[in-house]
Design a protein around this nucleic acid. Structure first.
Lengths: 334, 334
DNA sequence: TTGTACGCGTTATCAC
DNA sequence: GTGATAACGCGTACAA
């Protein structure tokens, strides 16, 4: 591949002039610039980004590390981040930690080694990769889940008020006339799962309904795990008459189990789930959901990250966005 | 951040020795190696990947450029590619072209500038970014859609036998007793859309059913566009009794329109769609699908790409994988 | 306005 | 087995 030296030689100028022309820096004689660009075109020259970054000591690449690329919530978040990063001239690379502390660590190493400009991460598990970045002064923003041991608020975050959202979801089921309302949430210890369960309990308490530990279940935030749990729940003696499900992937498993048993959402089991995935309008009746502003979370995270890159020593800010209820047929008794 | 020089100084050796120790190259005295690693640990040293790549003239980063990150087919493909790339020590960065020639071009530029080791791309539209890569001798593999003007077969490809798969899908509907079978496919001119339509026609012809141009529709491979079309189809005078839908995103739109009208898949309208997305088992009755081996496509693409990187001048190979029918309730009249 | 020359951090070549 | 040292391709003082 052609280098800056080749271009300089062909254009009959110095490498410095080529560099200046390509970066629009300083004033360079229009005539020479013309010659430079023609030579570059002829040689099909592309500046070597590696060399450029090495020299500048910065890259314009951001990393987004998520726990599950197949989860629509995260792909939507990714698009949000991408959209605002693009306009600032940054590219976004998407990395899938698969909720494995190992993979997460590997990607963090890559981000470090490649000297990426910053990282947005949904911290997976109790492992603390974020601290490592923070300590090394790599700009980092946490999304979706708060940083495990960061009581002091030393890192930027974009979170959702899960507890309130979950409370509204269960309160909605109460308002619709359901009274034995269960909660299927994510793995215990994962912040979003715990918060959504707390919100559910809040709503029951507020409605004067008794706490019902036997109507609380945990699964792995994925369809298969949720299906197993749902089968037991549906076949059990003390079946709830409604269910608040903590994400849309698990709702798939629940619907599958209901399908197997010929149960209809709304009529046989009131249903509401977190995340407004596209398919939720395709089921019959349409699934009531708690819509998280995934796209906004992504763009807000990008904004915070860019701000931190620009000003590494500013105080950490924690943004909390609201989710909102989208009632549909699956939470109507009919 | 600490550099190799710092480590060398602290360990009391030369930078060459540090480099050798870190790369496991050559034989380095265990005693010295020990000193090196201790110094590195103390300084929290991370090799600078930029400098390394600049020196080595190669990176270990692969790009995957897809037309829609929110499409489960592509996220599944991404995971497949990632899985095999990882084991070879490569990372994968996922880029979203959004079916825009502009964005695609921008990402190709980035791949070029950052000197990525190779690119897997689902070519969007008739624009020919692939040729650019090929001409610059950047290893590239096309997936999902064949390269527009590549009759000569100069670039590696991983494709699916769409025509056969579509034929089987429509033949299945015929076998189930449907007779006025329509086809909702993607944008005309997009290879997968055209091929699936062709397969549909094949099946009708083979069954002795008349060709029915008025029962062929195009939409944009997304839910909203498909919903609009589906509304017209369902409200029209000459409504088909079954529909072969060319991807799962559009199936969402169709199901939504059916929902609005109280129509039940299978009974009121036989339905089969491409792509075995997780949610297809959540609808009632479950959606019959043509399952593309998305994960395999990804891993095969990675394999081909790594092979091409190792041997740039080998003959191009074109792999065609089979999709398979997964009959479920939506194609049963009951 | 343009050119010369150095350094970014690493690896590879060559002596020792 | 180890240590100097020269690249890799680019940006930018500094000098002209």
């Amino acid at each position: 591949m052609a280098t800056i030296t080749d271009v300089a030689a062909l254009a009959g100028v110095s490498t410095a002039t080529v560099s200046r022309a390509f970066n629009g820096k300083s004033t360079v004689d229009p005539l020479l610039a013309e010659r430079v660009f023609r030579a570059a075109g002829e040689l099909d020259y592309r500046p070597n980004g590696l060399a450029r970054n090495l020299r500048r000591q910065v890259t314009t690449v951001l990393a987004l590390i998520v726990s599950d690329v197949e989860n629509p919530f995260f792909t939507s978040l990714a698009r949000g981040m991408e959209d605002t990063a693009q306009t600032a001239g940054y590219s976004v690379v998407l990395c899938n930690s698969d909720d494995s502390a190992d993979k997460e660590r590997r990607y963090l190493e890559v981000a470090l080694q490649e000297r990426m400009a910053g990282v947005v991460i949904s911290p997976s598990g109790p492992v603390d990769g974020v601290a490592m970045l923070r300590d090394r002064r790599v700009p980092v923003v946490a999304v979706d889940r708060p940083v495990p041991g960061d009581a002091g608020g030393t890192v930027d975050q974009v979170l959702v008020d899960n507890r309130t959202a979950a409370r509204e979801a269960t309160a909605h089921l109460v308002a619709q006339g359901y009274s034995r309302i269960g909660c299927l949430t994510g793995p215990a210890g994962v912040a979003t799962a715990d918060e959504r369960l707390d919100g559910h309990r809040d709503a029951l308490a507020a409605a004067g309904l008794p706490a019902a530990p036997q109507h609380e279940w945990h699964a792995d935030y994925r369809p298969l795990g949720a299906r197993e749990v749902a089968r037991e729940v549906l076949d059990g003696a003390d079946r709830p008459d409604a269910l608040m499900v903590a994400n849309s992937a698990m709702a798939i498993g629940v619907l599958e189990a209901m399908n197997e048993r010929g149960l209809r959402p709304g009529r046989d089991l009131g249903l509401i789930a977190f995340d407004d995935a596209p398919w939720t309008r395709a089921v019959t009746p349409p699934l009531s959901v708690v819509a998280q502003p995934a796209h906004s979370i992504g763009s807000e995270a990008a904004r915070l990250l860019l701000a931190r890159i620009a000003e590494p020593d500013a105080a950490a800010v924690s943004t909390v966005l609201e989710a909102h209820l989208v009632p549909r047929g699956s939470s109507r008794r009919d």
